[in-house]
Design a binder for these strands. Structure first.
Lengths: 124, 124
DNA sequence: TCCTTGCATAGATAACTGTCTAAGCAGCGG
DNA sequence: CCGCTGCTTAGACAGTTATCTATGCAAGGA
């Protein structure tokens, strides 16, 4: 799943803005961005990623939301299958941590030549 | 629409991995990532962004896909409302160009402290 | 003025998704 | 072995979305 992304996309690697994507590359990349396209998953990912290499128990994540535990589990699965996080069982609990390589990769895909321009407070 | 993103999110700005997002920030960011979560839109954006400040006629975009013109128009609208591209009519044709500021902003949101690690070719 | 071309909008429909409840599975402690 | 806790899976359902056809609108040329 994550390997699919890696194998399909490793060869390419110039940012979006430098040359057009092939249909195959776009297909694979879209899965990763789609996983980021939900506010609950974005918050989950930020909660996990903000702890770096110290992984997080699912029980700590569920308590941060007003959603049932199966719903959180579903979102974690989506993030997992996108390759953005990995889970590991230790005893009764399951711990997740972020995959910084894919995050870094996606970050570079969105880079443009236009550096140093902060987002405007308001556009005309 | 794009202003909503700007106003909600300008104040924050540390990357995902540095501190957890608030629910409001996640809501707004998710809209932008959701727009990127479709292979057709990713290819459209890359076709547009790859030309930098030289904008692209819609007619050139539709011919690159095996989809009807209204479908392409729909995807362009999604990208437009996400603030990723802007359109301008000149005579009979409509031309689009990318908004590098938002792309740069999203890129920074995905940055991690782990720099310089390329994506692996295959994971175990 | 009318016709043609380029693009957007409207409406319909099949497919997907986010959420819930219910049930199942893995460990651990009695 | 039994029951409890933490998490995942299954199934249902409402809301969303990607695509199409049909239509509308703007601009330019005859």
């Amino acid at each position: 799943m994550s390997n699919q992304l890696a194998s399909e996309v490793t060869a390419c690697c110039p940012p979006l803005a430098s040359e057009p994507l092939t249909a195959g590359q776009a297909e694979v990349l879209a899965k990763a961005f789609k996983a980021l396209g939900d506010p609950v998953r974005l918050r989950l990912l930020s909660l996990i990623a903000a702890r770096g290499s110290r992984d997080v128990c699912v029980c700590d994540l569920t308590s941060a939301f007003d959603l049932t535990q199966p719903t959180i589990s579903h979102h974690l699965k989506v993030l997992r299958e996108a390759g953005l996080i990995t889970g590991q069982r230790r005893g009764t609990w399951v711990y997740y941590r972020a995959e910084p390589q894919l995050l870094t990769f996606l970050s570079r895909m969105l880079e443009t030549s236009e550096r140093g321009t902060p987002i405007p407070v308001a556009a005309p």
